[in-house]
Design a protein around this nucleic acid. Structure first.
Length: 548
DNA sequence: CGGCTTTGACCGGCGC
DNA sequence: GCGCCGGTCAAAGCCG
């Protein structure tokens, strides 16, 4: 394959392959996409594909190519083995163009043929190599996915067990005080990390007399059901994008709640919290928006206080009613840095490129929530957690609770340890890990050692792992190592994918984080009766969140 | 013409 | 109660 050209598996059409100038082929790494290879054997399908008509042909053999003239009968002989060996439509088309040259009778010399056959052989080898690599990557992916699923199942099991035990326990403890409000304390702690979005759920929990009534006939839902854009509810507030978002999803939960109130309460609580948890990604980019594989529609722009750059608001448009939104804003200190803040979880399938970012943000949010849930309200020494969780100082992720919503910041703007960047077996390096999830199994160091944690005092008492927020206080941005161009935007998909793998593939990560936080908080707040529930709520969060 | 962006208006939360 | 601020709405305009 000529340099500067790439192979794209077009997942949007799910059936096409194409050769193109490789200026943006990083969006779709050669992972296991659902490509319909059987179509490659279909002659008609081959004819349908427009390979070079609107793109410049590869420079090596374009002088005699007449792309529009392809004699199919002559292709079969040459192409038959290629179908067998590679099954890739790309080769078929490529050779199709070449073959048309031969059929012209203009250049019928043997040398030309030999050269072409050599080239074909090379391409064949290359494709076989790619196939092998693809297989390998598929295996890696399935391995990671398997681990993740297993972990998820395990967490759910434990969550259910704990919840059962806990419910029994709380019934005894709280019966006298709360007239039998079941599990009021635990969800309460969970809810405390979010201000407004959790209030509704909180009301449900705090008012025992209303609880069952609201569960079965949610007051807001009665108004919101069937509303569309621009329709206001009783409060006069527009409900765009909300009637089908978590709030509406909670309708389903409420239905279920009739059957299993406690479990449902937990789920809706988690959902509400997830809606509020945010993941912020900092990346250097000249583009107005980083490419994360999703489709977004801008619905607003505001000048935010303290930043001369406007903040743009986007909504995911890949599916109707997808609750995911993001804010994009340039960093005030360094305008080459683009800060993208994600909120919510997708309610639809995602393309691989989008999956990478979504999984990353999900995993990061899970981290955040597991930390936030386990902490008490703004009383902790900021440095305590940092020292405990983060022995080393390099940082990539920031968990911040100073904002109205608990936020995780993934800083992809610098490489704290170039040596680790060069070694793919580094245990946990969010921004520059080269997608080697299997390395977790062999790594001796715990991933958590790569994360810097700072506790940020706030009413939500979140966790702050990091540097971004503290960049002005802790490490001047100028001191960061300069970023190579090829480590920036183009590699974002890989980077995010790596981060995803790092966070989701390692069962130890969340567990260790939760354990560390729990132990610290447990020590700092012996009276905090919610501490023992940390793991439980964390699991709830993770299991629900990972559903996407 | 449909989808997207722009932009002024509106709303709710929060601090004073 | 008032003003500030973040977030969202939706009409108008733009664009392919």
């Amino acid at each position: 394959m000529d340099k500067g050209w790439g192979l794209t598996l077009d997942t949007s059409s799910s059936q096409s392959l194409s050769l193109f100038p490789s200026n943006d082929n990083t969006m779709f790494p050669l992972l296991g996409f659902p490509v319909n290879l059987s179509r490659a054997a279909n002659k008609e399908a081959v004819g349908e594909v427009d390979f070079f008509s609107d793109r410049p042909p590869p420079p090596s053999h374009d002088h005699n190519v007449k792309p529009n003239i392809v004699k199919q009968e002559n292709l079969d002989e040459t192409l038959a083995p290629l179908h067998v060996n590679t099954g890739l439509q790309l080769l078929t088309a490529n050779t199709g163009s070449d073959q048309s040259t031969v059929d012209d009778g203009v250049s019928s010399d043997a040398e030309d043929k030999r050269a072409k056959s050599t080239e074909l052989a090379q391409l064949q080898v290359e494709l076989q190599r790619m196939n092998a690599e693809n297989k390998k990557l598929k295996e890696m992916l399935s391995h990671v996915t398997g681990n993740y699923t297993a972990l998820q199942m395990h967490l759910m099991t434990l969550m259910q067990q704990n919840h059962h035990a806990e419910t029994t326990e709380n019934e005894g403890k709280l019966e006298d005080k709360n007239h039998g409000v079941d599990g009021g304390k635990v969800p309460r702690q969970f809810l405390d990390i979010g201000p407004s979005g959790t209030a509704e759920v909180d009301d449900q929990l705090s008012d025992s007399s209303d609880e069952r009534t609201r569960s079965s006939t949610p007051q807001n839902n009665n108004v919101e059901v069937g509303t569309r854009d621009g329709v206001r509810n009783n409060n006069g507030k527009h409900e765009l994008g909300r009637e089908e978002s978590p709030e509406s999803e909670s309708q389903g939960y409420n239905k279920l709640q009739k059957m299993n109130p406690s479990n449902c309460m937990e789920q809706s609580t988690t959902e509400a919290t997830m809606r509020k948890a945010r993941v912020s990604v900092r990346a250097r980019s000249e583009a107005p928006m980083i490419s994360d594989g999703c489709q977004w529609r801008k619905y607003g722009q505001k000048m935010a206080k303290g930043n001369p750059c406007p903040r743009a608001y986007y909504r995911c448009t890949m599916a109707v009613g997808c609750p995911v939104r993001k804010q994009v804003q340039r960093c005030a200190e360094d305008r080459t840095i683009l800060v993208t803040t994600y909120e919510g979880t997708h309610n639809h399938p995602l393309p691989p490129a989008a999956m990478a970012m979504a999984s990353t943000t999900s995993a990061a949010a899970s981290m955040l929530l597991s930390g936030s849930m386990s902490s008490a309200e703004g009383m902790m020494n900021p440095n305590l957690l940092a020292r405990a969780i983060l022995p080393c100082s390099s940082s990539m992720a920031t968990l911040s609770a100073s904002a109205p919503f608990p936020t995780v910041t993934l800083d992809l703007t610098h490489n704290p340890n170039p040596l680790q960047f060069q070694r793919p077996s580094v245990p946990f390096q969010v921004p520059f890990l080269q997608g080697q999830p299997q390395s977790f199994g062999s790594g001796s160091a715990t991933p958590i050692a790569q994360v810097q944690a700072l506790y940020n005092q706030s009413k939500f008492s979140g966790l702050q792992l990091s540097q971004e927020v503290g960049s002005s206080q802790l490490a001047p941005q100028a001191s960061r190592p300069p970023l190579q161009p090829n480590q920036q935007q183009p590699s974002l998909a890989d980077t995010v994918s790596a981060a995803t793998a790092a966070i989701t593939a390692d069962p130890n990560f969340t567990a260790v984080l939760a354990a560390a936080i729990s132990s610290i908080i447990g020590g700092a707040h012996a009276n905090n009766n919610t501490t023992t529930n940390n793991n439980n709520t964390s699991r709830t969060t993770i299991s629900n969140f990972s559903g996407n």
